[in-house]
Design a binder for these strands. Structure first.
Lengths: 224, 224
DNA sequence: GTCCGGATCAACCGTGGGGTCGATCCTTGG
DNA sequence: CCAAGGATCGACCCCACGGTTGATCCGGAC
């Protein structure tokens, strides 16, 4: 029997993309969609779902709280948190809320499909050790008693910064990045600097390490 | 039925280590060992083997040539090339000679066991794309018509250099590496410099990328 | 309108890192 | 014995990088 997947994301375009990818799979089908958490909970009351692909950032009810409510029900579907870059308290709170794992939205489709199957079969897609380490490293402020996550923790990276970070993670110099993005080197330096302070890292070397450890980039990605 | 494994390596100690690891597995057994290629071929004539763990650097007959002869036989066992660091023409020639994959000797045992099972079930342990990229990157001198590999290609890293490289790949600065290995920073710089020239890389950032891409270190390894 | 965040760029400066040369000490092997 | 290679360290130079400050432009929020 195929895996019944539900998509929860406020970006329609992104849902469409995922739906097309999943439609090509013989063992998966998208049986439901929702644009926010409230809608998701509503739909779930009347639809049998195996795996929920859940965005963290949504209007009305965010992914974390939605996940918490979903997982509170007996016989709840598995929840796979999707983030753009994050590594912020949202994603980790999602795990604490009962999600089976989290993934980056820009992973190659094969990765995502594998993750869905893993989650469906009961596995977590993030190694617990990795999670723990990242938690220790990036969230020294978790309330432990699950109140509101207190957004003060990590500052989010902007889209542009994440874009730069991808290139840093591939070993490019500031000059090369500037050329690639058609920018001045000064701008690249500004971005890199902000990335370092936001993530609490020392230099671009640690950026590469972090990128690989978190799966922002992964071995075999063509970096070399 | 358990996987019948053969160990081919001139280092007795290393064979012992592997044997102990494999002995702990319910689905594997070491049915043969050999200290060089000639001995390996001889033993194989009288013993049924599923997977051969083959070192590249051996006296008499090296791993590549031994692999070639093994794979030339009908019903040949799978061959998994083992290297210390390499990435040299030996390992890749091994793949061309018919090996099902190659691994680094210092991978965690679980990785090795997984690789053995993958190879046994017919999978290659190195993604073809990765192999191709690394081939392009590191062996622009392959004769294409499989003569002697012409050892002039990459210079091998020494043990010490590889040790330093591991730490570089974890994001440590020269000073931190010096402290870790109880060395002067000057020495570390010398090692790092040699690593860069030997591998044809520009800076330590690319070392990190390479280390992750080749599996020298891998995500979840505790680097952060 | 104003305010704010993001993106863009510039000038400065101190330091770490990489390149080069050279030196010493040791072990291995011919 | 001597040659060769590896490991260790020092001195030198240069520059890419990271930190700081400050500026401009723009679009969205209020």
């Amino acid at each position: 029997m195929s895996i019944r997947v539900m998509l929860v994301d406020d970006q329609v375009l992104l849902r469409t993309g995922f739906r097309m990818v999943l439609a090509a799979q013989p063992d998966m089908e998208v049986v439901a969609e929702a644009g926010d958490g409230v809608e998701a909970l509503e739909v779930l009351r009347s639809t049998a779902v195996d795996v929920v692909l859940m965005d963290v950032r949504m209007p009305k009810l965010d992914g974390v709280e939605t996940t918490r409510r979903i997982c509170a029900e007996p016989g709840a579907p598995k929840v796979l948190i999707l983030t753009t870059f994050d590594l912020d308290e949202y994603a980790f709170s999602g795990l604490k809320a009962g999600a089976s794992g989290f993934m980056l939205k820009d992973v190659p489709p094969a990765e995502l499909l594998g993750a869905i199957r893993s989650v469906h079969s009961g596995d977590a897609v993030v190694a617990p050790s990795t999670t723990r380490r990242l938690l220790d490293r990036f969230s020294p402020m978790l309330p432990s008693s699950g109140k509101e996550p207190e957004h003060k923790g990590l500052e989010r990276l902007t889209d542009r910064e994440r874009e730069v970070m991808m290139l840093v993670a591939q070993g490019l110099s500031n000059g090369e990045i500037a050329a690639r993005l058609v920018l001045s080197e000064a701008t690249v330096k500004t971005h890199v600097g902000r990335i370092l302070t936001k993530l609490g890292l020392r230099d671009r070397v640690q950026v590469v390490v972090l990128a690989y450890e978190t799966g922002l980039v992964r071995a075999g990605g063509g970096a070399l």
